[in-house]
Computed example of a mutant assay.
Amino acid sequence: MSSSFMLCAIREVYESGSAGFVSGLLSSVENYINLQCRDLDSVHCDALRFTLQHCTAASLNLQWTSIPEEELESILPLFTHVSRLSVDRWLLLKMFHCCSVSDVQQEAASVLLSILQHKLDLSCRSAMDLTTNTDSEPLHLTADDCRATSRVIQRAHSDTKTQLILQDCEIHTAGMDELFPVLHSVQLW
């Protein structure tokens, strides 16, 4: 199902207020919520939250999707209803920053790592959008980006090593200092 149709469908379901329609919609699309390449406004985010609140084990595709940060903070805790997540590196970084903002988001960090199967891909490969003219410039990770990434890994309290894919990323000394405390619990790529 196209992402524009899916966005219209979840919005209609949200506006109907019927939680029963969520399961009907998701069973017809094999629990796959495709919102790829969409710019979500507050009403779209309300519809996504409503959908996630009333589903279990949905696959969610948010690659190249724009979500306002204040909306993302309230969506992240609902990832407990998501079994698989697809995101590009820019949205993944936004999620890291949201998860590292407060202790309230600690569980969200753990869930995020789990649904990403402990694979945090910040490489150029995760940024390729074949629908646009994309170049493969390196991602410049700031000290704040590295601090947020480190906090997500620390807050997950997992025995599973996290794959941290930094291919095509540039990190300065201050950023490496932020990542140093989690190097024992990651596998760098």
Rank of each mutant, 00 (worst) to 15 (best):
E15F: 10
C99I: 04
S100C: 07
D46L: 11
A156Y: 02
R155I: 09
A57P: 02
S23Q: 10
E15G: 06
T131V: 06
S126R: 05
V152N: 04
Q154A: 14
M6K: 01
S2L: 15
M6G: 03
N61Y: 11
D159A: 12
V13L: 10
S185F: 05
T149M: 13
S74T: 13
H54F: 05
F180D: 14
P77V: 08
Q154Y: 10
S185I: 13
E12G: 11
C99Q: 02
H157W: 08
S158E: 06
L179N: 00
H184Q: 14
V87C: 07
Q167D: 14
L164A: 03
I75V: 14
L130T: 12
S83I: 08
R84A: 14
R49E: 07
S123I: 09
V101M: 13
R89F: 04
L85M: 09
Y32W: 07
A9I: 14
C146H: 02
P138Y: 01
S150Q: 15
R49N: 05
S2H: 09
H44K: 04
C55E: 05
H140A: 10
C98Q: 06
H184L: 10
E69C: 08
M176C: 13
N31W: 06
D39M: 11
P138F: 01
C124A: 14
L85C: 08
L78Q: 06
T134Y: 15
G20A: 13
D129V: 04
V82E: 01
H54A: 05
T134K: 08
H172G: 07
A58Y: 00
S18A: 08
I171E: 00
N61Q: 07
M176F: 14
L188H: 03
S16M: 04
V29P: 03
L26S: 03
C98P: 01
Q63I: 03
H172V: 09
